[in-house]
């Protein structure tokens, strides 16, 4: 029998009760899910991305379903950091939620990251910061995670501005070599990298002769991207010495186990919350049995089990 403590996991300085979190942009501000989801069971909640200033977001339609996937171009619709701190954080930090809150932030320019990080420094109720370096839907925004040096500099600036808070860097898969970018983030001093954000895609209505999304292109998520995201985790786990949070199409206990043995120390479940709102807590209940099946007695023993031991046959 695997004790509950064996489910805990570490992402650098961030300690989580279990390795299953819910991903940014797919769980609102959690309040919407009260009554449906038992928050106390979760490894953590990453609320919807917050930006320094309010953003109305992109014109609808903002989502389009594709085969086993979902394209979105929400456009970081949010009320801004101050609104979040006043109206959402107190509740998220309350005993009603009682699970680690990872604040996800995005910025229009490199200097906004340290500004935001400095603003939340020392505030109670935030367990870690996750830098959204990778939203594909923000017009005019710089993609901070497409160049290793830029990625390192942005991560370092946020770390300097808020040195006490564990820091996660959420990367885009829309790059030639994600290993280089992850190395850049690690060099910048993050505690872990979150792999990955959505894959850039498009859906077209040829009869109406236009893209389906109001924004044109969007980010693909859901089961369709799981092998691609798993590959990113695999590559980085074998090359970079940094804890990994696996993200991308994770919907079942099998998916969670695949990401962990590939090298993820934790996972975030995203799009599944849209179509199976209680999936994350159900998977957490299934975790002890899956670890036993793997022949290990803790999450720590499962992490990287395959990527560390497997070598291609000669």
């Amino acid at each position: 029998m695997i004790p509950p403590t064996a489910l805990s996991t570490k992402l650098g300085r961030l300690h989580l009760p279990n390795p299953v979190l819910v991903a940014s942009g797919t769980f609102g501000y959690a309040r919407e899910m009260a009554g449906l989801v038992d928050f106390k069971k979760l490894g953590g909640i990453v609320p919807k991305t917050v930006t320094l200033n309010p953003r109305p977001g992109n014109p609808p339609p903002r989502t389009a379903e594709t085969t086993s996937g979902l394209l979105n171009a929400i456009g970081l619709d949010n009320d801004g950091l101050e609104y979040f701190l006043q109206n959402h954080l107190p509740w998220l930090a309350s005993t009603e939620v009682a699970c680690p809150i990872v604040l996800n932030i995005a910025a229009k320019s490199a200097d906004e990251f340290p500004r935001m990080a400095a603003r939340v420094k020392g505030l109670p109720g935030i367990a870690a910061l996750e830098l959204n370096l990778s939203c594909p839907n923000v017009a005019g925004g710089i993609d901070f995670a497409t160049k290793p040096d830029l990625c390192r500099a942005v991560v370092a600036s946020a770390r300097d501005a808020c040195p006490d808070l564990p820091l996660l860097a959420k990367l885009t898969p829309n790059v030639t070599n994600i290993v280089e970018i992850a190395q850049g983030a690690a060099d910048g001093g993050c505690d872990a990298v979150s792999l990955v954000n959505t894959f850039l895609g498009i859906a077209i209505d040829w009869r109406r002769k236009k893209p389906i999304l109001g924004n044109g292109m969007g980010g693909l998520s859901g089961p369709a991207i799981k092998p691609l995201a798993l590959r990113c985790v695999w590559q980085v786990a074998r090359a970079v010495n940094i804890p990994i949070v696996g993200i991308g199409g994770i919907a079942t206990i099998d998916d969670v186990m695949e990401f962990m043995v590939a090298g993820a120390s934790a996972v975030q479940m995203g799009t599944v919350s849209f179509y199976d709102p209680t999936a994350a807590t159900r998977v957490i209940d299934q975790l002890p049995e899956a670890l036993a099946t793997l022949g290990v007695s803790s999450v720590a023993q499962a992490i990287g089990l395959v990527s560390k031991t497997w070598h291609p046959a000669i």
Binding site: G25, G28, T63, I74, S273
Partner: peptide, 9 residues
């Protein structure tokens, strides 16, 4: 996408 208020679609 969700009906719950979490996706902002």
């Amino acid at each position: 996408a969700c009906g719950l208020g979490i996706c902002f679609s």
